[in-house]
Design a protein around this nucleic acid. Structure first.
Lengths: 232, 232
DNA sequence: CACCTTACTGACACTTTTTGTCAGCATGGT
DNA sequence: ACCATGCTGACAAAAAGTGTCAGTAAGGTG
C-alpha cells in the first residue's frame, strides 16, 4: 500500500502548481530516487492521470482536477446525475457539452448493473419557452468570475434605458428561468445584479480585481443572512 | 501495480450483487489465496470503502457506488458543483441534503487551491415563488422509479376534476419551475405526465412492473425523437 | 553551434512488499 | 453441537518495487 499512497500524493503534489516540476524535486519531496519517480509517473499516466513531461522542463498536470476514489450513496449519485442533466438543459451549449461528458464519464465508471439504476430517473424538457435567450457567452462570464476579471457592461434596465458600467463579477445566480450575474458595480459602488438577457454587450477588460472587505461575495452573503447552504 | 488494480476490481466485483459474497468466492475469481482476500478487504476498508463482513455469511458492500479515481476538467467539475447546487435549490429537503453532502465530499477531495476556484461560481435564489409546492414525497417517487413500483394516484387534472388511476412511474421531468412525473397510465393504456403539484395523494402499491416494449421509457423517448442528449 | 538541464530507458543487484500455507480463534446460522 | 465463514499471526517463498549506473533524446540558452 505504500506505493499506491505515494502515487496519490504525487498527483496531489503536482496539482496546484502552475510551474513545471522536475523529477528531482519530486524525488526530494518523497525521499525516493529519481528513477523511481520516472517509474511512478509512468504508472500514473497509464492509470489515466493527465501528466505531461517535457525534457528540459519538468512535469505538468493538465489543467484538470483529480478526484481520488470515492463512494457515494444512491442519493448523492442521483444528485450528481440529475444536476448534470439540469445544467445541460439550462445553460449554454459549451456547458451542456461538459455536462454530457460528465454524465458519460460517471456512467462508464459504474458497473453495468448500477448504470440501469440511473437510467431515466429524470428527463428535462428544454427550457426554450420559459428561458429568455441571452446573447453573451455564459462560459466567458464564468471564466471572468474565476479569474476575477472586470467586465464592462452595456445593460438595459427595467425601463429599457441603456447604461454602461464596469462591474466586478462575483457570481451567477439562477432565479427562475432567468440567469443573473451578481457583481460589484464600480459606478454605483454597490452590489447589483444583472439579468443576462438584458445585457446588450459585455467586454472583458483584461483588468483584474482583488476582493476587498467591502466588495467581496462573502460580504454580500453576510448582508443577506444567506447561510442556508444554498451556496455551492 | 498489480495489487492496486486488483483492489479496484474487487470493489467492482462486490458492487452489483445483492447477496453476500464469501472470501472463497473472491479468491477463486481473482485466482489468489483466501488469506490474500482478507488482507485486501482490510486495506479496502481502511481506504474507506464501505464493506461489511459477517462470519458465516460473507461480504457485502453497503448500497453505495464506488467511483474509481477520475480526472475532470474545470468545466466538468463546474457542472458537477452547479448541478448539485441547482438540485439543492429545486427539489425536496431530502435531496437537498444529499446535494450538500455531495458538494462537501467533492470539495474536500480537492486541494486547498482548487477549492477557491469553485467558490461562488453560482448561487441559487430559492425558487419559493415560482415553484408550486407539492405535497408528495419527491424522494419516494424517485425510489419508485428505480424499483419499478406501481403508484396509485389521486390526481386533479387541468379542470380541477379529481381522478384516480394506477401508473407505472418511468421518470421525473422538470419543465419550468414544475416537476412532472412521466408514467404509463394503466387506465388510459398510454403515456401520461402528472404535475407533482396536482397530485392529491400517492399510494405506493407494493406491486412491481416489468418494462414491456409498449410501456418502456425508451419507447416513449423514441416516439418523441428524443435523442438530443438531454437524457441523464 | 556548444552546453546545460531534464525526461526517459534498460540492466542488475538489493530491499521491501505481497503472497500462500498452516494453525488457531471468534461468530452467526442451523 | 456443528458447520461455514470471518479474521489474525507467523514464516518462508515469490513478486514487486527500488537504487545505482550508464546511456539516449529533446528542449532551452548563450
Amino acid at each position: 500500500m505504500k506505493r499506491a499512497d505515494r502515487l496519490f500524493q504525487i498527483v496531489n503534489f503536482l496539482q496546484g502548481r502552475r510551474m513545471a516540476v522536475t523529477a528531482e524535486r519530486i524525488a526530494d519531496e518523497f525521499d525516493i530516487s529519481i528513477r523511481t519517480v520516472y517509474r511512478d509517473i509512468q504508472d500514473l499516466i497509464i492509470t489515466g492521470v493527465p501528466i505531461n513531461g517535457e525534457a528540459g522542463v519538468g512535469y505538468m498536470l493538465d489543467k484538470s482536477y483529480y478526484l481520488p476514489p470515492m463512494t457515494f450513496d444512491v442519493e448523492e449519485l442521483e444528485v450528481l446525475m440529475l444536476g448534470a442533466a439540469m445544467v445541460s438543459s439550462w445553460t449554454d451549449t459549451d456547458m451542456s457539452v461538459s455536462a454530457q461528458t460528465l454524465i458519460r464519464k460517471v456512467r462508464n465508471a459504474l458497473s453495468e448493473r448500477d448504470r440501469e439504476t440511473f437510467e431515466g430517473i429524470a428527463l428535462f424538457a428544454p427550457p426554450s419557452r420559459a428561458r429568455p435567450p441571452w446573447n453573451i457567452n455564459f462560459s466567458a462570464i464564468r471564466r471572468a468570475v474565476r479569474k476575477k476579471e472586470k467586465i464592462h457592461l452595456d445593460y438595459s434596465d427595467e425601463q429599457g434605458r441603456s447604461t454602461e458600467r464596469t462591474i466586478r463579477p462575483l457570481s451567477l445566480v439562477f432565479v427562475g428561468p432567468v440567469w443573473m450575474m451578481l457583481g460589484w458595480c464600480e459606478l454605483r459602488k454597490d452590489f447589483r445584479h444583472f439579468r443576462l438577457d438584458r445585457v446588450n454587450q459585455a467586454t472583458f477588460t483584461g483588468e483584474f480585481f482583488e476582493d476587498t472587505p467591502e466588495t467581496s461575495l462573502q460580504t454580500y452573503l453576510d448582508s443577506l443572512g444567506y447561510c442556508d447552504g444554498l451556496r455551492p
